[in-house]
Design a protein around this nucleic acid. Structure first.
Lengths: 126, 126
DNA sequence: CGGAATCCGATTGGATACTG
DNA sequence: CAGTATCCAATCGGATTCCG
């Protein structure tokens, strides 16, 4: 199976660790999905309902630094900026998509588990 | 392809959002991988080099609440606690494994991109 | 052994105002 | 339009101590 060998990974020097830190967060995953086609800043912002300008900027900067997306300034007036996926970023959409599909498929199960857990906790506290 | 439709997802009420918030973090992913076989608290802690007791406890609690793992108190002295994956948690290892494999495969590319980015940034500041 | 509780510095993130 | 800058509140997380 695809999962890592549990004997050798997840030490402090495991190369996957800093990378997961950089890309495995909510907004990065959403931004990558939305960037299936090139989009401009405010377009992305509108689609990621709830994200603030500050956080979106930081997210896009980090994705750019890690080679997932490219930032292109358009020669318009006023200036426009278009973001698009690199081949590297494109290749990440597949594993991300798997994860997304999984969450959608198991949403109900998870919510039920949460409610059972919270109920049990409240019962113990009484 | 497996990725979500960019026209309809990532709204505030998209069911994937709170779930990704809960599971798509570094320590959760590492803990899930390490729990390929049932393990006790301090065993997990040793394998996740760098994690503190506090953070590991919080991580395991959240995974338990979301139905990914079960916590079993062993009738030993002193008490032992064993964590193991539920079927739901087991099913998550596959998409997680894909993501892990991806990070390992592209570590080099990402580091190069980071260095190019940082270098370019320093050049502009001067 | 496997936590819970507390303290506290560091980081995050929202709101707001300003800019080329 | 696409940011940057600043302020500030909340959260996170490390270290330490105590407990059944």
């Amino acid at each position: 199976m695809a999962a890592p060998d549990t004997g050798t990974v997840y030490r402090a020097d495991c190369p996957s660790r800093p990378i997961l830190d950089q890309i495995a967060d909510k907004w990065s995953m959403m931004a990558m999905a939305v960037l299936a086609e090139p989009r401009r800043f405010n377009d992305i912002k509108r689609r990621l309902e709830g994200v603030t300008q500050r956080v979106l900027t930081q997210t896009l900067r980090r994705l750019e630094r890690n080679g997932m997306i490219v930032r292109r300034v358009l020669p318009t007036s006023p200036v426009g900026v278009e973001y698009s996926l690199t081949p590297l970023g494109e290749s990440l959409r597949e594993p991300f998509g798997r994860l997304y599909d999984w969450t959608v498929a198991h949403t109900g199960e998870i919510h039920e588990s949460q409610q059972r857990y919270d109920k049990r906790l409240r019962a113990e506290e009484s």
